[in-house]
């Protein structure tokens, strides 16, 4: 008999089949919680070399990659913001905290609209990789402090910068006062997260599949096709939400979705979604607060801890 190798397994959340959970009823009886998460990022022209991941494929100065991302802030931001205003959506911003210092004008526009700011690290060219636990704590707290100083509210959510993680990331963020993570893609409903401090902490569905950068850069979708994918996802989650209570998120980037040849497809999807009743158009923080108040038992039902 061969011995089965032991693997390190994820113990962040418990297991329960989708159709065996208690139903989540969103405020006012809504069946689907809908949120849009614009990533407002700053990529450095000349970041330090990280031994684990190279920030740019292009030698210094990385003009092609840097300049299109700068386009997102210079041109794209206000374009998407006007669209979200039109459809009554408050953005939940995944924010490179240093942008508070570089581009406070953007922060002010979003703050005026009572948008949510959650942490996306300091820069999207600085990774969690290669940091000690103390250094990662310093980076996480620096980002939260910077955002709190700029907007007067401590961020509740975290999407690790450039989706770079350590095994401590979620524990550290919960200990720093965070309430939810966007880094896990295992479900269409919020999930209670086991952290070492035992503080109430949840995973809120963010979506890689509907993320514009994944759709456009990795899956190379045509803009109209991307809009159609969003509508198909909505139809499915909206139908199921009557029995389960679902979350749908569209993560965006101003250097992708706000390009003039792409915005129309996004607008059609937004118009479609917000044209339905029983949709709670909300923010990540509001979903997290509501879920935590709902309670672990009510959320998980008979979920079990999977064996390692």
């Amino acid at each position: 008999m061969t011995e089965i190798a032991q693997f390190s397994e994820l113990s962040l959340y418990n297991y329960s089949p989708y159709d065996e959970r208690p139903k989540i009823v969103w405020p006012n009886g809504a069946r689907l919680a809908f949120w849009v998460a614009p990533n407002i990022e700053f990529y450095e022209l000349n970041p330090p070399t990280n031994p684990h991941r190279q920030p740019w494929p292009h030698p210094y100065p990385p003009v092609p990659g840097y300049s299109i991302r700068d386009y997102g802030n210079r041109v794209g931001h206000q374009r998407q913001m006007a669209l979200l205003d039109k459809y009554g959506v408050r953005g939940s911003i995944s924010l490179s905290a240093a942008l508070c210092e570089h581009h406070p004008e953007i922060i002010a526009l979003c703050a005026e609209r009572n948008w949510e700011f959650f942490s996306h690290g300091i820069y999207n060219t600085r990774y969690t990789y290669g940091l000690t636990e103390d250094q990662e704590r310093e980076m996480i707290e620096d980002a939260m402090d910077t955002i709190e100083r700029a907007v007067g509210q401590r961020p509740a959510g975290y999407l690790a910068p450039a989706l770079s993680h350590s095994n401590h990331t979620i524990d550290l963020f919960a200990e720093a006062g965070g309430l939810y993570t966007c880094d896990l893609f295992h479900d269409d409903q919020p999930t209670w997260v086991n952290t070492r401090s035992g503080k109430p902490f949840v995973s809120i569905p963010y979506s890689l599949e509907l993320n514009d950068t994944i759709a456009y850069v990795v899956q190379k979708r045509e803009p109209r096709r991307y809009g159609e994918s969003i509508r198909l996802a909505f139809d499915q989650l909206y139908a199921e939400g009557a029995d389960s209570g679902t979350v749908m998120c569209i993560p965006t980037h101003n250097y992708q979705v706000s390009c003039p040849h792409r915005l129309r497809a996004f607008e059609e999807a937004l118009e479609y979604i917000t044209g339905h009743s029983d949709v709670w158009v909300t923010t990540g923080r509001e979903i997290a607060d509501y879920t935590i108040a709902y309670g672990r038992q009510q959320l998980e039902g008979s979920a079990v801890v999977p064996s390692a």
């Binding site: 022209l45 330090p48 210092e101 570089h102 600085r126 940091l131 000690t132 250094q135």
Partner: peptide, 16 residues
């Protein structure tokens, strides 16, 4: 590793 948490261009405007 100190360099990874040092931000010489973290100020108003562009980083160049």
């Amino acid at each position: 590793s100190d360099e990874l948490l040092s931000y010489p261009q973290r100020h108003y405007g562009m980083d160049h």
